[in-house]
Structure formats: C-alpha cells, structure tokens
Design a protein around this nucleic acid. Structure first.
Lengths: 243, 243
DNA sequence: GTGGGATTTGACCAAATGGTCAAGATGCAA
DNA sequence: TTGCATCTTGACCATTTGGTCAAATCCCAC
C-alpha cells in the first residue's frame, strides 16, 4: 500500500496508475500495456470515480453510481478494479501528479516575483479547472491521508524541502522579505485551494466562483498581490525595479 | 431544515441546538428546558458525534460508534435524536456559532492592524483548540453544504457583507492598502483553517502541528505578518506609527 | 414506598452496498 | 469460419447499518 521509495519525483507515481488494476491479460502483459478496450474503460471509470469520490467522499461514494456514470455494470467495473479501495487509490494516483506538479516548476534561477506569481496563477487555474481533484485531495488528507500519507512523507516532503531551500536562497539574496518558506507555501496552497474546496461557500457569499472568468481574474489578482506584497515584493509590477 | 430568517445574528442559531432533539417531555416542556439527564446525555452525544463526524465525514460515521463513544447503546442515542441526520445537524449547530463568532468581534472603531491581527490570532487559536470543528465544517461545505447552505446564504452573508463594509471604510480612511475585502476574508479563513483541516499533511511535512505551542506561535506570526504586510500595514508593530 | 413518566436496552427488521460467480456475448487472430 | 481469450452482465450473497419496538429498569414527586 503506497510507494515508500521513489526515484526522481513523479515517475514512481505513475506506477500507481497500474496499481489496483485487476486486468493483466496475456496480450497486454506481452505488449506491456493495456488493450484498446481496457484503456478506454479504465479512463471512463477513473473519470467517473473522480466525480463521485470528490462529491461524496470515499464512504459516501458507491461503486454502483461510479459504474453507472461510466456507462457500465457494477460487475464490469469490478472486472477492471479489484475493489472500491482499488478504484479510489487509482483515482488518487490519477490526479496526484498533475495536482502537485506546479510546485516543481519553481525555478531557482528566476526572480521570486515572476516565479511565485506564476506558481500562484497556476494553482488558481488548477482550482478553476480541476476543482474535483482539489476536493478529492482535500478529502483524503482531512480523513488522515489513509492512502497517500507515505507519499506526503517521502516524495512531497522531498519536493517541499527542496523548494524551501530555493525560497531561502531568494531571501538570502535580499530579493524578498524574510519569511518562513514552509508557511509561505502553506499559505499559497491554502488560499488557492480554498476557492475550489469551498466553492459552495464562495458562491453563497459572492454569487459566483472560479467558474466565472471575471471572478477568476479578480481572485488571481487579489491573492497574488496580497501574498507578494506580504513577502515584500512590489506588486503589481509597476516598474521593473523591485526591492 | 435550516433557519432562513433570524433576528440578531447568533441568537437564531441557538434554535438549532434544539432542532432534531427527540425528547421533549412533559416536565422539560413545563420548565422550558431539559432535564439533568437529558442535558448530560445530549452533551455526551454531541461531543462524541463531533469526533466521529469530523474523523469520518457524515457517510463514514456510524451511529453505533457515536453511541459507544458516548457510553450508551445505539437505541438510547436514537431516543435522544430521531436520526443520524438529526445528530449531524445538531452537531453542526453545536459548533457553528462558536466557529463563526470571531468575525463578529471585528470592531469598526478600532485600528485595522490591531483588529485584523486579533482576528487572525483568534482564528488560528480556534484551529488549534477545535480542529475537529474546523474539519466538520470543511467537510460539510465541501459536500455542498447540504445542511447549512441556507445559513451561509442568510446569516453568514449578512455578517460578511457587514464586515466587508468595515474593511472598506478602513481603506477609504487610508488605513490600509486597497484590497478586495471579501478576498481578504477568504484568505484569512483559508490560511487559518488550513492548519486544522490539513494537519496531517502539515505534520508529514514539518514534523509538528498546531498542537505544539512553539509551532502555534510561529504559525501565528508567519500568517499574521504575511497578511498584514500584504495589505500594507507595517508588521510587526515596530513603532506605534503605521501608514 | 409507590405510581407513572423518563430512561435504557436487546432483539429485530429492511435497505443499501461491496463483492462473487457462472454463463453468455464479443472481438480477433489464424 | 472457428476457437480462444477478452469482455460483460444478471443473479446472488454476506455484511453493515440506520432505525423500530416492546419490555425492563430507573428516577422522583407525592
């Protein structure tokens, strides 16, 4: 259950995409891949599962509903995945890499203003485009991360440690105010994901959410300027001169 | 289901504390309250339910476990609350007021630096002391707020609108940078609640969480300084002179 | 102490649901 | 076309779980 060791971050998560997959037929093993039908159904299932799990949580989701949304019988779904938990794990793996990817693009050689602004923008755009992924992830972690705790402790920790060092270097170089890097990262995660996870509340209070282009831009600007100003970077970039 | 109208904010939520309560005996009705035993058991149940619902979510929670944790039989629990949903609603009501209370203390007559710092501190302290309440609330909203949507749309919206006006007045008075008040509030909610809701992830990445006094202070400082600097308030308060 | 309402519980029920299985349908290579 | 592996499904099963009910016990005002 869960990958504890890993080579270059990311690559081992792909392994999860196969984990829990029941079908490994002669042909597919021979070819080292999945048949056309397998590929299609696997995607249909994961897509449906993402919706169901993110809407209802693991316990609230039913295999029956996932199967229905994927357009097949429950039995057939269970032909592809050994159990509900297997579907769940595969769904997590399905979204985890793309969900955590943006952080990897933080470029040590770049300027903190550009880099962090880009990171925040990416995160908000992800919240807008994949709110289900955000909610699934939030759900999993809130329940105590029963499935992905090992990944958080190994791969994610490694990644965060690395990026914290990048931020510290920026601080040492006098390019931004002295802040605790890990709290900065948490703040970025919290604010950006909040708009996806709590979209119902956002809608109740503002009348719209990130699905609206106008509100998306507005949120992007507000969050970015608040955080960048918070770490002592002039924002919006009025002139090229910062510090 | 759910109170749509309300007098002075807060008072009407108390009504929920009775909602779903099955027992309304002759004596208690006469006295307008609950008997000693009722009072005790009701509290035991709600306390147990808070733990169970926050840990497992609504669907994952079982009445049996709540009853066990409350030290009584399932039948007896169902003597006090008509259904699982009734327990859930009562639990939400049980925490909702205290959870949302801090925002009410934002004093229009005060200085934004003091007022917002105090608000952020309160919210973080709440996350530290009542992480279960935070998670229960987060869970409910993430599932689409099936139970409390009306409250969000009426009472909470009224409160947020009012406080947004306060912040706008501060901006007009030149006491803080021009920011969208509602996004500022969302940012404060997101960051502070994140430490409770994602504590498992926090622990995986930092080794501690808000349960640790040292980390609590550190978080308080980081979040407060980031946000206050973000809205153009000098922080930490080096001299009495701001602006 | 006693009578009647309040409290408590075990036995029980029905629905929901994850999962199995054998049989049939389909796709495809020779 | 044919044979075999893949794919698909309905019938079925066991367990979990929310909720009911009648009976037993407790509590307390009189």
């Amino acid at each position: 259950m869960g990958v504890r060791e890993g080579g270059p971050a990311g690559s081992e998560w792909a392994v999860h995409l196969m984990a829990g997959l029941r079908v490994r037929t002669q042909d597919s093993v021979k070819a080292g891949g999945l048949s056309r039908i397998q590929e299609k159904n696997r995607t249909l299932i994961l897509e449906a599962a993402l919706g169901e799990f993110s809407r209802k949580g693991f316990s609230g989701a039913t295999v029956e509903r996932i199967a229905a949304e994927a357009g097949m019988s429950k039995s057939n779904l269970l032909y592809y995945f050994a159990s509900k938990e297997a579907i769940y794990n595969a769904t997590l793996a399905y979204i985890l890499e793309v969900w955590l990817a943006p952080l990897k693009t933080l470029n040590p050689a770049g300027e903190p203003a550009q880099e962090l602004a880009a990171y925040i923008r990416q995160k908000i755009e992800m919240s807008a485009q994949f709110p289900e992924a955000s909610r699934l992830f939030a759900n999993e972690v809130m329940q105590g991360a029963p499935q992905i705790l090992p990944i958080l402790q190994s791969d994610l920790k490694r990644l965060v440690d690395e990026k914290c060092r990048v931020i510290e270097d920026w601080i040492s170089a006098g390019k931004m105010r002295r802040v605790d890097p890990v709290h900065l990262i948490f703040t970025i995660w919290a604010t950006t994901q909040h708009y996806a996870d709590f979209s119902v509340q956002i809608r109740a209070l503002t009348g719209t959410d990130l699905g609206d282009e106008e509100f998306l831009r507005q949120t992007e600007f507000s969050v970015t300027s608040l955080i960048l100003n918070g770490i002592g970077i002039v924002w919006p970039q009025e002139s090229g001169q910062s510090r």
